[in-house]
């Protein structure tokens, strides 16, 4: 499928040059909270991607009928309905992950990326473009979550997706020398990691400014 230049920009822009987390600095709160392990981060990324894309589509469909004065309420209702749906699906099919994510699934409603995309894009653009924009932003958010969670789980617990990467025999308790870094389990370290990603991102995209 050949994508036009504009479509490409809408879909791929948020993944790199206009990333919602590291450029717009939105959604940091949940990025710190759910990235202790890779699995919840993946699920969270997928959930947000689905919700942003779907709510973008719905709001874009309704955009000409929503009265300007109550548009925030309408947007919230749509997002809340979608979040509830995703939450119920997760509880039914991935109960342990849903428990790990706990309140943060519900808090997707307050995720700044959602309201930002609805206000800035879906209210003024066509359905297909809005869908691509939502998809791109959701994936951009998920990408950062996955990078942060990768390092946090690897160095904080020695596992990836629950699979042991650093051998048990390396640990001090088993006569080795290695020890997990407890700092990685703390939100403070997640913020430092996000900072590092921003640092790397800015260094790679110098021509942006």
């Amino acid at each position: 499928m050949a994508l036009s230049q504009k479509t490409k920009e809408t879909l791929l822009g948020p993944l790199n040059a206009n990333n919602p987390v590291v450029v717009q600095v939105l959604g940091i709160c949940s990025a710190l909270a759910v990235t202790v392990q890779l699995k919840p981060a993946l699920v969270m990324g997928v959930a947000v991607t689905i919700i942003v894309a779907m709510s973008n589509v719905i709001i874009s469909l309704l955009r000409n009928t929503i009265p300007m004065r109550i548009r925030i309420i309408v947007q919230l209702v749509v997002v809340a309905a979608l979040v509830t749906l995703v939450s119920e699906v997760l509880k039914a099919f991935a109960y342990d992950v849903a428990m790990q994510l706990s309140v943060y699934i519900g808090l997707i409603i307050t995720n700044c990326i959602l309201m930002g995309r609805l206000e800035a894009f879906a209210m003024t653009n066509k359905v297909w473009d809005s869908f691509l924009d939502g998809l791109g932003n959701g994936l951009g958010y998920a990408a950062i979550l996955i990078i942060v969670a990768f390092f946090r789980e690897l160095f904080g617990a020695g596992t990836l997706l629950g699979f042991r990467v650093i051998p048990e025999s390396w640990y001090v308790a088993n006569g080795g020398f290695y020890e997990n870094c407890g700092m990685m389990m703390m939100p403070a370290m997640a913020l430092i990691l996000v900072g590092c990603i921003i640092w790397a991102h800015r260094s790679l995209n110098k021509e942006e400014k």
Binding site: E179, C181, G182, M183, M184, M186
Partner: peptide, 10 residues
Amino acid sequence: AFLFFAYPTH
């Protein structure tokens, strides 16, 4: 501080 929070048992 890093040592203290990262490797408290040591």
